[in-house]
Write a protein that binds this DNA or RNA. Structure first.
Length: 189
DNA sequence: AGAAGGATTCTCT
DNA sequence: GAGAATCCTTCTT
């Protein structure tokens, strides 16, 4: 399957299909274990505010990157989905290091964990100059077999979105590969 | 030109 | 559980 065919599909189909896939850049290989879908007409998506220079890649060809800076320090990696002209993307929220551990540690201040979108961007050494570039040129993706059970939940950190979008189960993850989220834990008792 | 805020992470308590 | 870090993008005068 071509990259275009893989990503030129409904975002809610592409997102879970990326779980278990591997991202390759230089000597680093990451296995994707957590993603979020951002759809056309989605009040949680950057595209909902209209097209700007920053988010323009979301309208661009499927299978290209959309990288943006969050909170002034975190490089967030998205993969663009849906046909040209339809703004949508999948945010890579979490991954596990399969190769290039030393490189990742150097980029992550000695740490190896990549659960969290800012950590994924850091581990891959991405910045906004990568935005709008096609997959396969420096950063490539490889699909693997059935990753096992998939879980869903509402998306993280989108309190500004409309209730319907805020509560929609557009986060997909591999529960066996993901530790429980600290900020999600309920008080015991 | 100025202001506001963010698809987060880390440290300390 | 709370607060700081950090700066670019976008919207408003």
């Amino acid at each position: 399957m071509t990259l275009e065919a893989l990503f030129c599909r409904p975002t809610l189909e592409v997102a879970p299909a990326l779980l278990g896939a591997t991202l390759h850049k230089e000597d680093v290989v990451l296995r994707i274990v957590e993603v979020e879908a951002y759809l056309p007409g989605d009040s949680a998506a950057h595209a909902s505010k209209g097209r700007t220079p920053r988010n323009a890649p979301m309208w661009g060809p499927p299978g290209h990157l959309y990288v943006y800076l969050c909170y002034g320090l975190h490089q967030m990696l998205n993969l663009v989905t849906e046909p040209d002209g339809v703004p949508a993307a999948v945010l890579i929220r979490g991954a596990v290091v399969l190769a290039g551990h030393e490189t990742v540690q150097a980029r992550r201040g000695g740490r190896l964990d990549c659960i969290g979108p800012g950590k994924v961007g850091a581990a891959l050494g991405l910045d906004t100059t990568w935005s709008a570039r096609p997959l396969g040129e420096g950063l490539s993706i490889e699909l693997n077999g059935d990753p096992g059970p998939i879980a869903t939940s509402p998306r993280i950190g989108i309190d500004y979105a409309l209730p319907a979008d805020r509560l929609a189960p557009y986060r997909f993850f591999l529960p066996k590969a993901l530790p429980p989220r600290r900020d999600r834990r309920r008080r015991a008792g």
